[in-house]
Simulated assay, not measured.
Amino acid sequence: MSKYRVWLLLVLCNLFWAGNYVFGKYVVAEMPPLMITFSRWLVASVLLLIIAYFYEKPQWSLVPKEWISLLAMAVLGMIGYNTILYAALEYTSPTNASLVSALNPGIIVIFSLYMLKERISKIQSIGLVVSLLGVVVILTGGRLTQILHVSYNRGDLLMLAAVIMWTFYSIIGKRIKNIPPITTTAVTALIATIIMAPFAIVQGINYTELSPLALQGIAYMIIFPSVGSFVFWNIGVRQISASKAGVFLNLMPVFTAIISWSLGERITLAQISGGILVFIGVYLTTGMLDIKLASKRQQKGTA
């Protein structure tokens, strides 16, 4: 798969996740975080298994050999991250949640350097800083010093825990070599569903009492953030490094702003400026500039 296609998948992945922040705020008002997570993966796991069976034709006999990693991914990425994310949205705004999640790329880079022995160039390091700066511009309305005065509530702290879980989920996913990415996502989703089932049965919920908006939100979460995003993310992490894939998470606040604007909120100059910085940062961190510079040096060397 070409790098450009991988980058497109990671962009779409974060577009879908941005919608999860927006719709999650509405759905969590009617459903407990655990039930939202269980409802997502109950249906998504079936869809993912079907897609994996026909598209990847995996060797299912290899799955039990990776059961420890798959179990860890299910607990951290499917159950932990999503349940804590929805719990956080009960206490904080999607904007604050995005602010905390903006720490994700940096944390992934730091952990990848030590745990996966990955390396990034100086240009990619600059790209990481630029993209983070863009996120800060978006979330502070262009008043950069405002970041020092943000009051973090319980929801913000929960989001920090979610970020840590997603970091380990991504690193563990990078280490799985023998199982195709969609199959990995499908199996971990199934494991997560099985683990949550007893708790969901005890908690219970009457879906007929949910509003049309909540039902639409759940449908969106199943199709796009659950199936689309997780498949695209696992493909991206396999094809490029976890640290490079992680910087695409900085696109999430940009897309969140765009979705909010489409729902009637005013988009500001700071959001536009910050969005430009984020895209520049992503461009640098993906290594595209490194490739072009290396190509030019090679051409000069052969000339």
Rank of each mutant, 00 (worst) to 15 (best):
Y4A: 11
Y4G: 13
R5V: 15
W7P: 03
W7V: 06
L8P: 05
L8R: 01
L9F: 12
L9E: 11
V11A: 13
C13P: 11
N14I: 13
F16V: 13
F23W: 00
V27Y: 00
M31Y: 03
P32A: 04
T37I: 03
F38D: 01
V46Q: 04
V46K: 00
L47Q: 07
I51Q: 03
I51V: 09
A52Q: 08
A52G: 12
E56K: 05
K57S: 10
P58C: 01
P58R: 03
L62E: 10
V63W: 09
K65E: 11
I68N: 01
A72V: 06
A74I: 02
L76F: 13
I79F: 12
G80E: 04
Y81F: 15
L89S: 08
E90H: 12
S93A: 08
P94H: 02
P94Q: 02
S98F: 01
S98T: 07
V100C: 08
S101D: 15
A102G: 15
P105K: 02
I110R: 07
F111R: 02
L113I: 14
Y114L: 15
Y114V: 15
R119L: 13
I126V: 15
G134Y: 06
T140A: 05
R143P: 12
R143A: 15
L148Y: 12
Y152I: 14
R154P: 03
R154W: 13
L157A: 10
L157W: 14
L158R: 08
L160S: 11
Y169H: 12
S170G: 06
G173F: 12
G173T: 11
R175D: 02
R175I: 05
I176M: 01
P181D: 09
T183A: 08
T185D: 04
T185L: 03
T188Y: 04
A189Y: 01
A192F: 04
I195R: 07
M196Q: 10
A197D: 10
P198F: 05
S211K: 05
A214W: 02
A214C: 10
I218G: 02
Y220G: 05
Y220F: 07
I222P: 01
I223G: 00
I223Q: 06
P225M: 02
S229A: 15
V231W: 00
Q239V: 13
I240H: 09
S243L: 00
S243W: 01
S243N: 03
G246D: 00
L251G: 05
P253I: 04
T256E: 11
I259P: 06
W261R: 09
E265Q: 12
T268Y: 05
I280E: 07
G281W: 07
L284F: 11
L289A: 08
D290R: 10
L293Q: 07
Q299M: 11
K300P: 03
K300M: 14
A303R: 15
